[in-house]
C-alpha cells in the first residue's frame, strides 16, 4: 500500500469527542438489529450523518435515514436534507405528520398551529412500522436540563416512553442496546458536545449546512420575544409590524416556532465567534416549543419525543 501519511495532529477535545461518537455509532450498529438515523436537517443531525459516514468508511451507511416531516419546514432545510443524504449515499425514509393527521390519530392544529408535539406520534409509528430497535439522534446534553440527565443509550419501552427514574446504569463505554421486541433505544453520539463544539467541528471539517444558518436579509416579525420569519406558516397579526432584518438561525425546527437571531455572521468563523460569546442559550433564544413550562422537554421526552 503506497499512500501518503498524514501528520498526526495532537489529540484535542474535538478529537476525543469525534472518536467517542464513532465508537458509539459502531457499537449500536453491531449490537442492534435495525438501527436508523433521525435526521432533521439541522446542524446537529448534519454532524451526526457526517460522523456516521466516517465510522463506516469506505462502506455505505449500514442504516437508513429517517426524516419526520412536519410539513412546516424551511425550504432551505429540505434542499439540504436531499443534498446531504445523496452525498452520504444513504436511503431516506420520510414520515409525514400530515399522514398521522389524515389517519385521525392526532387533532389537526390547522395550517398555522404548531405540529411540534404531534411529531412524537409520527416518529413512534415510523419506528414501529419499520421495526427499528435503535434510533440515533443528534441531541446534546447542554441543550436542556432534562437532556442533561439522559444516558447515551436511552431505553424506550414498548410505548416509546422514557422513564427518567429508571434509567439503565451506563458504565464505562459498555453501551448496552439489547431490547425485547417492541422496545427500542435512542442513541445520542453527540451527548457530550456543546453548541460551540459542534460549530468548531463543522468549521474544522468544512461541512455543508442549510443556508439559513448564515446571516441573510429576511422579513420578520417580533412575537413572544422571538423574531419569526414571515412566510407560509407565519402570518403577521394586524398589530405585528413586518420588518426586514439581517438574521440567521441558531437552531432549525419548524418555521412557526423557530426564532431567528439578529446577526451579521455569514461565515463559519464569524458564527463560531458569535456562539463563543453568546449570553443566551440556543434553545432559549430561538425555540418557542421549550417555553410552555418548566419541564416542557422532560414531559415531551417521556412521551417519546426526540
Amino acid at each position: 500500500m503506497t499512500t501518503t501519511l498524514q501528520t498526526p495532529h495532537a489529540t484535542d477535545h474535538l478529537d476525543v469527542l469525534e472518536s467517542h461518537a464513532l465508537f458509539i455509532l459502531r457499537e449500536v450498529v453491531a449490537e442492534c438489529e435495525r438501527p436508523v438515523l433521525l435526521f432533521s436537517g439541522g446542524k446537529d443531525s448534519a454532524v451526526l450523518l457526517h460522523l456516521a459516514a466516517k465510522a463506516f468508511a469506505p462502506q455505505q451507511l449500514p442504516f437508513p435515514v429517517l426524516h419526520i416531516d412536519t410539513g412546516q419546514n424551511f425550504d432551505e432545510v429540505l434542499d439540504f436534507r436531499d443534498r446531504a443524504v445523496e452525498v452520504a449515499g444513504a436511503r431516506l425514509i420520510v414520515a409525514k405528520v400530515q399522514d398521522t393527521i389524515d389517519q385521525g390519530k392526532v387533532a389537526d392544529p390547522g395550517l398555522l398551529g404548531s405540529r411540534n408535539r404531534l411529531q412524537t406520534v409520527t416518529l413512534l409509528d415510523a419506528i414501529n412500522d419499520n421495526k427499528f430497535d435503535a434510533a440515533f439522534g443528534g441531541a446534546r446534553r447542554d441543550e436542556d436540563k432534562a437532556r442533561a440527565k439522559e444516558r447515551i443509550l436511552s431505553f424506550r419501552d414498548a410505548f416509546g416512553q422514557w422513564d427518567p427514574r429508571q434509567q439503565r446504569p451506563e458504565l464505562w463505554q459498555l453501551y448496552q442496546g439489547k431490547v425485547n421486541p417492541g422496545e427500542h433505544v435512542r442513541a445520542f453520539p453527540l451527548s457530550d458536545w456543546t453548541e460551540l463544539d459542534v460549530w468548531q467541528y463543522i468549521g474544522r471539517e468544512k461541512m455543508d449546512l442549510p443556508s439559513i444558518y448564515f446571516a441573510h436579509e429576511r422579513d420578520v416579525i417580533s412575537r413572544d420575544g422571538m423574531w419569526l420569519a414571515v412566510g407560509a406558516f407565519v402570518e403577521p397579526n394586524p398589530d405585528e409590524e413586518v420588518v426586514r432584518k439581517m438574521v440567521r438561525f441558531r437552531t432549525v425546527g419548524d418555521a412557526n416556532c423557530t426564532g431567528a437571531v439578529i446577526s451579521n455572521a455569514n461565515t463559519l468563523d464569524a458564527i463560531i465567534e458569535e456562539v463563543a460569546i453568546a449570553n443566551v442559550s440556543e434553545r432559549g433564544a430561538t425555540r418557542g416549543d421549550d417555553k410552555f413550562s418548566e419541564t416542557a422537554m422532560e414531559d415531551r421526552k417521556r412521551e417519546g419525543y426526540f
Binding site: R141, A146, P164, R165, S191, T194, T295, E298
Partner: peptide, 29 residues
C-alpha cells in the same frame, strides 16, 4: 443541575446530570 421534575419537588438528585465548562485551555465534563 437538578433538572427533573421529581428532583425539584423532592430537593434531591436522582440521576447524574452532565454539565460542561470550558476555560482557555480545558474542557470539563
Amino acid at each position: 443541575t437538578d433538572g427533573l421534575r421529581a428532583e425539584r419537588e423532592q430537593g434531591i438528585t436522582i440521576d447524574v446530570a452532565y454539565r460542561y465548562a470550558t476555560t482557555p485551555t480545558r474542557k470539563f465534563i
